[in-house]
Design a protein around this nucleic acid. Structure first.
Lengths: 285, 285
DNA sequence: GCCATCGTTTCACTCTATGCAACGCGTTGT
DNA sequence: ACAACGCGTTGCATAGAGTGAAACGATGGC
């Protein structure tokens, strides 16, 4: 809700960005180890014995105590028969809370469902975190060929549809910082690994309003995406429709893209974004 | 509640008496506080200031250090503009890993989708953790009236469809332990709060193969569920179809139930359970 | 201007967390 | 059968991680 506390006309734009921010880096050995342990549990075999944690560099007595402490918060679970350890569902509950508390995570699902109904392919919503895109929502299509499970996973921004849609619409200096830091690895033969080629592609994306990932992260997968903006007009997320190349022929892309863009705009509007109309004025506000 | 963790208050290290209990309880103050902090972030306002954490009994300098340590693992995120804290998506990634590593979480989604298509109502899959059911998968119906978000949430077993389906099929002595420990709170006027009434209902559930939650947890919500068995024939989960009472009239329940049971059996079979046909297994007691 | 509030840093002290070694116990090998 | 091993568990002494109080700066309100 808009704050109209004072009859004055000033819009309070708070810029704390340069202000208080932890300058000193704090860390905790125990916390680092606990999270290392959790991440170790998320890899390889689902169930692990106590002595397996020595692979993660933990002494068995340390591992025992950490596991027991984590177990009582349901971050790890112990199999009743085998006595082995696995990830617990307390983690799942908190993880979903993290997404459902994102404003986008709240109301976007029906929009994605509608997009799936229109396009006949799987729709996803992701946000940029650091240099990677994290997929937070997904609506499956009824087609037999399913994409690999992606929700909760992250992927490099430069080779994904959603990632490129976001990059193309972020502030120029932030994009340059990104481009300076990122390493463009070749995921498939079509991945854009040249900085200038990527920059040019992003310009095109910005101009037409949607991005195309043409088998740039997975061979055989084509993906069309569009950006989602928040109240202040900053890109905060992206929606995409993805499918196998045979079901997403090149000449069908503009039509699919128009639906993706329409969905993205609907979600943006729900976030308070004024919409495309505000694009006309160069230095609005 | 949080008073135990207040600054200055000495926490006596609780040692389990050397009795018949083979296991000693380990805990870590830092870990407890970190998780308390995360759970605090999952409540109330989405964004919190540093000083808000004093409500959770944390000293502000402690909160600062914990938050910074958690931030670098992406368990908490700092808003770029406001500088406030929220839950991070690293938690989401690990949480989904916890579910996707459950064998059931892997392949069940398509079965749920099919069940939704057949029944026209929302289908869920949950497992029993302690005395509660945790919903880990869900497939939405296209109906306008949606259930409240449940995935990642937990609910008492005795007043939910899935919970009763699981309870009804667990080993008798384990059920008795459950019944002895649980407190039967009245969630609605129809909640079974009498131990004997519940036991009798569970017998009926076991006999007919499916359970009915008839507005026992939420008024206006009816839910039909069936158990899922693993390779060794133990109940590990349950599937349900739930909807508003007007769309789930009593005379339609047997038909819906048959579909739910069929889906549950399919999933059980995928888990290696021989199925109803294998009832006459040689080593049956 | 001054006061209030919030985030950050420093510092000395305490108790948490740790590694090591030893113990039970079940399994394996000879 | 006994011995040798592997695994999970526990006791203990010690290092140093983590803690709270207080001081410091930086904002914003009045």
């Amino acid at each position: 809700m808009a704050s109209q506390l004072s009859p004055g006309v000033k819009i309070p734009i708070k810029r704390v960005a340069k202000g208080p921010r932890p300058r000193k880096a704090y860390s905790s050995r125990l916390l680092d180890r606990s999270i290392l342990l959790l991440k170790f549990l998320a890899q390889g075999p689902v169930e692990k014995r106590l002595s397996d944690f020595s692979e993660a560099g933990l002494h068995k007595s340390t591992a025992l105590r950490l596991l027991d402490a984590l177990r009582r918060h349901r971050f790890v679970a112990v199999d009743e028969v085998t006595g082995r350890y696995r990830l617990g569902l307390g983690l799942f509950e908190l993880g979903l809370a993290a997404v459902s508390r994102l404003d986008v995570g709240q109301f976007a699902p029906p929009f994605l469902d509608a997009l799936v109904a229109e396009s006949g392919e799987t729709a996803s919503l992701g946000i940029l975190e650091g240099t990677d895109v994290v997929y937070i929502l997904r609506s499956e299509c009824a087609q037999p060929l399913r994409l690999p499970q992606s929700t909760g996973r992250s992927a490099p921004a430069y080779c994904t549809g959603i990632g490129k849609a976001i990059l193309a619409h972020m502030e120029p200096d932030r994009l340059e910082t990104y481009l300076a830091d990122v390493t463009l690895l070749s995921r498939t033969p079509r991945t854009l690994t040249d900085r200038e080629a990527l920059r040019q592609d992003l310009r095109r994306v910005r101009a037409r309003g949607w991005s195309l990932d043409d088998e740039e992260i997975f061979a055989g997968l084509r993906c069309v995406a569009a950006p989602i903006f928040d109240l202040e007009g900053r890109v905060v997320a992206g929606v995409s429709v993805a499918g196998p190349t045979n079901r997403m022929p090149k000449d069908s892309l503009p039509l699919v893209a128009s639906k993706v863009v329409a969905t993205a705009n609907q979600i943006s509007r729900r976030l308070g974004h004024p919409g495309r109309a505000g694009k006309a004025s160069p230095s609005a506000n």
